[in-house]
Amino acid sequence: MRKLLIIPFILVLASCEKLLIEETEYSNLATFDYLWETIDREYSLFDVKNVDWQAIHSQYRHRADTSSNDIELFEILADMLNLLDDGHVNLISTFDVSRSEETFLRSYGRQNIDIPTVALNYLGSDYHSTGGMAYNTLRDGKVLYIRYSSFSNNISPSQLRFIIKRYPNAKGLILDMRQNGGGYINNIWNILNVMPGQGQLLYRTQIKSGPSHDDFAPVEAVTAPEVDNPYTGKVVLLIDRGSYSATSFFALCCRSYDNITLVGDTTGGGLGLPKGRQLPNGWYVRYSVTRTLAPDGTNFENGVPPDEVVVLDPLSTAAGKDNVIERACDIIEN
């Protein structure tokens, strides 16, 4: 009979998963603590955000604890996250998605483009579209104008080569990425695979690797792809504060190309790659876990500056002109 004791022993063993799995407490305080600690341990950009995260803990914890419903809790947690002023930091629930209000205001409050003017007077009704790029020629075919409004629209190197070859008389091209809020980073490399890269350093990047704010894994150097038969004409990249995330990465890369000039306004930044977690109450949080440094060590997290600042002139727009595009055309023609 003693031999049968093996069976209850095995059943006890089979229940030991309960010892290791703790059902997480679902309370406002548990959600707040988990969120605050996650950001404290894994967020990668405290050094450029000038935020005292410890002080924020005491400032917001009691408010979160005493919030009376989900909407109130969401607003408190979103307010706390918004102090990071990072477009890659979001709180996501079934009923709302938080965003950095500062980033939003920078993007839309300082738009350096008038879309109807561009659509009507530069792309025109006879524009073409390939791989998410809308394009036409300006100044009697001497300038190729390409509007790329989102990195979520996939473009392949062969598609971009096709666009360029279609206009052999163009002396240069304008890549208009104003208000391009980012998307798939792969498309950066698809575009750069047409540009005259020679293995030059584009940027360095590091991922957060430990609980302290300055715990980072070793630096990864990112270099330009070496390209056969690249496009060697002049390229002008148009950017503004709405050029965010992947577009900022692209602008940072373009600084290392001799034939590319950045024109317009500083980008919106967003050079930290995002990661997410679920919270104890079922919501999600998204936050940056990497930092990106220019070849000279500068962290352009808050925006990549243009080589030449050109602000959109309302008088020009009223006359149906985009003075930023006009300046880009001048750079190419001269």
Binding site: I185, N186, I188, W189, T205, Q206, I207, L273, P274, T290
Partner: peptide
């Protein structure tokens, strides 16, 4: 995050 999954991002992660 598949959105930012490139060779470089994958390597970092």
């Amino acid at each position: 995050d598949n959105h930012s999954a490139t060779n470089e991002a994958d390597k970092l992660l």
